[in-house]
């Protein structure tokens, strides 16, 4: 049986678009020239801060930056659809680490020559890999309301504490994160989240409050319905910045990290531009600006945060060393059955 990748299946739908884009005249460039770069990424604050903090030095050199704003699934689809083209329409591609790994496994990313990235030498070793640069990171902490909870909870086990019955907030779309943290508490491993299922069924008896989105969860915290929830420390920082009275603590089991990454398409039209753009993303000043405005921690050692900001969004070396490892291949393989279990058992 032939194995059909996304590329084979969506080629029909996306081919016309890709053809149109690649047929657009592009300037013939010398190897070291960079005139135009297409960056496919998230919209909203992330895109705004790229424009504000990463792109200005490139734009000053006459580089035209063309954003291609999509959600991750659409971005993955587009990249895979163009895989067989000699020249695609995308240069720099952004993904969270799990999706970036999947793109790497699907063979659509170009391999990076880090010697050409002057800022690469500052990349924190734990976030380095061969196929992408880590742009920003955070980790899943326990976000709680100090008005209701005295003393910072130090373990994910707090979500199961009966004194918080009816006060734990859950986002409906976060089944993987919940299975991960339940597996951490319940004796699972990075390649076996199954023990987490039993614990989550126990949690259900504590009547957690379940919300459809981040925003509705924030509303639940604001009105006092939710006292604690797991979330990225960056999110807790932004909530606090927005006026929500929340604090966060790092669980002793080890926080689950999230790294937002960038790489480049194997068939990127503009290799030199990709290198220039990726290097600009690692620039210490730009990274500090992202931290200040978005709450995500720099991934380079030469970006120094003000002490107060470091305390609110950062992780000590010891905490970073203790981050819970993730087996992205295992997650991709089981995601579908987990969703089914989540909907049919946990949420039912």
């Amino acid at each position: 049986m032939p194995h059909i990748s996304r590329a084979d299946f969506v080629r029909g739908a996306a081919g016309a678009t890709a053809l149109g884009l690649t047929a657009m005249p592009r300037l013939a460039l010398a190897a070291d020239e960079c005139r135009q770069v297409v960056v496919t990424t998230w919209g909203g604050d992330y895109d705004r801060f790229l424009k504000q903090f990463v792109e200005p030095p490139l734009v000053a050199k006459g580089v035209q930056v063309l954003p291609d704003i999509t959600q991750e699934p659409q971005r993955m689809t587009k990249l895979l659809a163009e895989r067989s083209l000699k020249k695609g329409s995308l240069d720099v591609v952004s993904f969270s680490d799990a999706s970036m790994f999947q793109m790497y496994e699907d063979g659509v990313l170009g391999s990076l020559d880090f010697a050409k990235l002057p800022n690469a030498k500052y990349i924190l070793k734990q976030f380095a890999n061969a196929y992408s640069v880590p742009h920003i990171f955070s980790a899943q902490v326990i976000v709680y309301t100090p008005d209701h909870i005295k003393g910072a909870p130090d373990s994910y086990a707090a979500f199961w504490d009966s004194k918080y019955k009816g006060r734990v907030g859950i986002q409906r779309t976060e089944w993987v994160n919940w299975l991960q943290l339940a597996a951490q508490v319940g004796g699972g491993s990075p390649s076996n989240y199954e023990p987490g299922k039993k614990l989550l069924m126990d949690l259900k008896k504590n009547q957690p409050r379940i919300y459809p989105t981040q925003e509705t969860l924030a509303a639940g915290i604001a009105n006092g319905d939710v006292w604690l929830t797991p979330d990225w420390r960056a999110r807790a920082y932004m909530w606090a910045k927005g006026g929500l009275k929340v604090e966060s603590s790092v669980p002793k089991e080890g926080a689950l990290p999230v790294v937002y990454r960038a790489g480049y398409a194997k068939n990127a039209p503009d290799g030199p531009c990709c290198i220039a753009y990726l290097d600009a993303m690692l620039d210490a000043k730009a990274q500090v600006e992202f931290a200040t405005n978005m709450g995500y921690v720099p991934t380079v050692s030469n970006a120094k945060l003000p002490e107060d900001l470091e305390r609110r969004i950062g992780f000590s070396e010891e905490q970073r060393a203790h981050f819970y490892p993730q087996d992205f291949r295992y997650i991709a393989k089981n995601n579908s059955q987990w969703l089914q279990w989540w909907n049919q058992e946990f949420l039912a």
Binding site: M1, P2, H3, I4, F9, A332, K333
Partner: peptide
């Protein structure tokens, strides 16, 4: 078609 976890699908 047939779903392949972690991949996409088999053309069957």
């Amino acid at each position: 078609n047939r779903y392949v976890p972690g991949g996409l699908m088999l053309q069957v």
